[in-house]
Design a protein around this nucleic acid. Structure first.
Length: 260
DNA sequence: ATGCCTTGTCGCACAAGA
């Protein structure tokens, strides 16, 4: 089963690019972030016509996540537990049954956190604490579990073309990276690093200042795996060419293959 | 040091992103 994550930066603006990639890659599951759409306005039929079941957790104007799946989804749950007052649509979970068992997929859009001297940074850290708590609960189920999304975290200096540009940024601050390391410490494996130790692997290139042309990228989109999912990990790839396409998102898809 | 670009909301520019 191929499972992908992709921050599409607006579903309405990305209908053509998303359709083209889904036709080409045909992932079994695609976790989308920043749909920037309410549920009622999400162009479901575009994806249903491509054979996908659609689950959304949207919000007006900003944020919003969706899961597309060729197979039926069960136990669909929006919202990250731990703060009923949190209005931001950043988490959606579903269970999908493959030929050799189930996989639980969490689709997340972790807060950016900039500027770091604003309320946005403590919100990011608190959201990460809730994610760690939720991941612990899910790990206790001992299922194949994939936590896929835009983490807005550069894990290490080698995950940025110009790490010196990011030292005071919420994506690379030590406090942010330490919280990401906690996810690994409780038992989640970074699927890309499990199979690919090379430098220069990026998933985001800013629209500004010719970042794509200069390959000034960062790796912030991750698929983190429970031990039961890691045991089934066959491959991982970044579909970098998508960034050079027509009217692209500033992120590209990351795709894993699990033997489930 | 800041903006560089892109998106969505309705706006007659602005917030937010990373």
């Amino acid at each position: 089963m191929q499972i992908a994550t992709w921050n599409i930066n607006g579903v309405k603006a990305r209908i053509d690019a998303a359709s083209a990639w889904l036709k080409e890659a045909r992932p079994d599951v695609a976790c989308l972030q920043e749909i920037k759409s309410v549920d009622e306005a999400f162009p479901r039929s575009v994806f249903e016509d491509l054979g996908y079941n659609v689950a959304t957790h949207g919000q007006k104007g900003f944020n919003g996540v969706a899961i597309l799946s060729l197979r039926p989804m069960e136990d669909i749950r929006p919202r990250l537990p731990g703060d009923d007052a949190d209005e931001q649509a950043r988490y959606l979970e579903a269970v999908i049954t493959g030929d050799r068992g189930i996989v639980r997929v969490g689709c997340l859009y972790l807060p950016n956190g900039n500027p770091v001297d604003s309320e946005k940074y403590p919100y990011k850290l608190a959201w990460m604490d809730r994610l760690i708590a939720h991941a612990k609960d899910r790990l206790a189920l001992e299922e194949p579990f994939v936590l896929a999304g835009d983490y807005n975290i550069i894990p290490q200096a080698r995950d940025a073309a110009r790490p010196e540009d990011w030292v005071n940024d919420a994506l690379f601050l030590q406090t942010s990276r330490d919280k990401f390391r906690e996810l690994a410490a409780i038992g989640l494996t970074d699927s890309l690093r499990a199979l690919d130790d090379s430098d220069g692997v990026y998933t985001f290139w800013d629209y500004q200042a010719g970042a794509w042309q200069k390959n000034n990228g960062i790796r912030i989109d991750h698929l983190m795996l429970s031990p039961q999912a890691t045991d089934r990990l066959m491959s991982v790839r970044v579909d970098k060419h998508v960034r050079g396409g027509e009217k692209p998102s500033d992120h590209v898809p990351v795709v894993i293959e699990l033997d489930v």
